[in-house]
Design a protein around this nucleic acid. Structure first.
Length: 425
DNA sequence: AACTAGGCT
DNA sequence: GTATAAGCCTAGTTG
């Protein structure tokens, strides 16, 4: 840790609220008050179904390893896999701090096919996460008077200026897996209303393009191109027809990597590329987007000189270790943080401005919609069905125009009776 | 309270 | 030589 998290929050916390941050508190208070409706019977049924399935898996696991144990204990599982069953720990046997071999999903994935218990554990892990953190916790958080769950937003919960959400956290509701995504079906619109979700498309990459003033990337966004497709064409040097799914996936990973200050080595960790291939891609990427390269070098230098970086709106984040060359690891880490902070922070600033502007814009248009949730680049609202189109237009316009960059911001809107099954507008 | 794991943008 | 992708919140186990 470069800085104690708590210290940074305290130091910046005062500043954020008093000097820099936007007067968002009443807006957040309204959202917390509104909450979002839960389909309680749905959660009750899901809980039962998962419980039954997990009991089946548990039984099979005990049979497969020859004895019962606590399936939720990573230590017990580690001993069973790597001592009792004699499986070989992959990854040169990296041990956790407690001296056990890791049983993380990444490790288990590499052990697939070596023993039948591995797949069972993986399924159990997924289901147990969903049940404990979501199905059960959300039911417990349901307010009986309102029929809604009411989160708490913190304006100073993230060092970058993002909001955070807790008790319950509604910014990490599953979506990636099929079973997880189903949880969203339990978040429903209240009577006669629909949910409307509007998110910014690739806002962070647009911010990078704007800050770096990289001509090629700006041009791609101006032309309304699929940016990952454009990147794939650039790094592979092929035409649009020749871009395969895999090429686009690699390009997407690189684009994300840029935002996080990732290295070529990091690329090999999240793709199937070899180090040589990854290095080659990064080199080509910077040749095709020279403005990005210049920008990244510039922000590293600036952060070291000043000891801080700023978002487009002047939100600062300090990096005390960056100026001393003592600890290389710490310095590298702060360097990555210094690259990410203005990007993530500017996106947060823009979203906050939009959230300030939306309620008055809705009011001026005579619309009844209410903002319910914010998930960093997404807003979830609720509105009467017959006001859907008009509401979407007001929200999208407000978000698009929240803060002008040298390229337009773009949004996508979806609606539905629940958060899991939404259609494009 | 530390550790491990895993959910999201 | 070593580690290597930013930012969060929550649950279960362990000592």
């Amino acid at each position: 840790m470069p800085i104690m998290q708590a210290d940074l929050r305290r130091v910046n916390g005062t500043k954020l609220l008093e000097e820099i941050d936007l007067p968002l508190t009443p807006v957040l208070a309204d959202m917390e008050m509104s909450g979002i409706s839960l389909d309680l019977p749905f959660f009750e049924e899901t809980s039962k179904r998962l419980e039954k399935r997990m009991a089946e898996i548990e039984k099979k696991v005990y049979e497969a390893v020859g004895k019962p144990f606590n399936i939720n204990s990573t230590q017990q599982l580690s001993d069973i896999l790597f001592k009792q069953l004699g499986l070989e720990p992959p990854d040169r046997g990296n041990k956790t701090a407690s001296g056990h071999y890791s049983t993380s999903a990444g490790v288990l994935d590499l052990l697939r096919g070596k023993h039948p218990v591995v797949d069972m554990i993986l399924e159990n892990r997924e289901l147990s996460k969903i049940k404990s953190t979501y199905v059960d916790a959300l039911q417990a958080a349901l307010n009986a008077d309102t029929g809604c769950v009411h989160t708490s937003y913190s304006q100073t919960g993230a060092v970058t200026g993002r909001l955070s959400s807790s008790n319950p956290n509604l910014q990490n509701i599953p979506i990636r897996t099929e079973e997880g995504r189903r949880i969203r079906n339990g978040f429903v619109a209240s009577k006669n209303n629909v949910l409307l979700s509007v998110d910014y498309s690739q806002i962070e990459l647009r911010i990078v393009a704007d800050m770096a003033q990289d001509e090629a990337m700006l041009a791609a966004f101006r032309a309304g191109e699929d940016i990952h497709m454009t990147t794939a064409r650039a790094i592979y040097g092929v035409g649009p027809e020749a871009v395969t799914k895999n090429m686009r996936r690699h390009a997407k990973t690189i684009n994300f990597g840029i935002i996080y200050g990732m290295s070529a080595f990091g690329l090999t960790r999240s793709t199937d590329l070899t180090l040589a291939e990854a290095e080659d891609f990064v080199k080509t990427y910077f040749q095709k987007f020279p403005g990005i390269k210049k920008y990244l070098d510039g922000i590293r230098k600036l952060a070291a000189q000043q000891g801080y970086v700023e978002t487009l709106l002047g939100r600062r984040r300090y990096f005390p270790a960056l100026q001393s060359k003592q600890n290389v690891q710490l310095k590298n880490r702060e360097e990555r943080e210094a690259i990410n902070a203005p990007i993530q922070g500017t996106a947060a600033d823009i979203m906050k401005i939009a959230m300030l502007n939306i309620p008055p814009a809705l009011k001026a248009a005579g619309l009844k919609a209410k903002m319910l949730l914010q998930v960093h680049d997404e807003l979830v609202l609720e509105c009467p069905e017959n006001e859907l189109k008009e509401t979407a237009k007001v929200v999208q316009d407000t978000m698009t125009n929240a803060f002008p960059l040298s390229i337009p911001l773009s949004t996508e809107a979806r609606y539905g009776k629940n958060w899991g099954e939404m259609k494009s507008i």
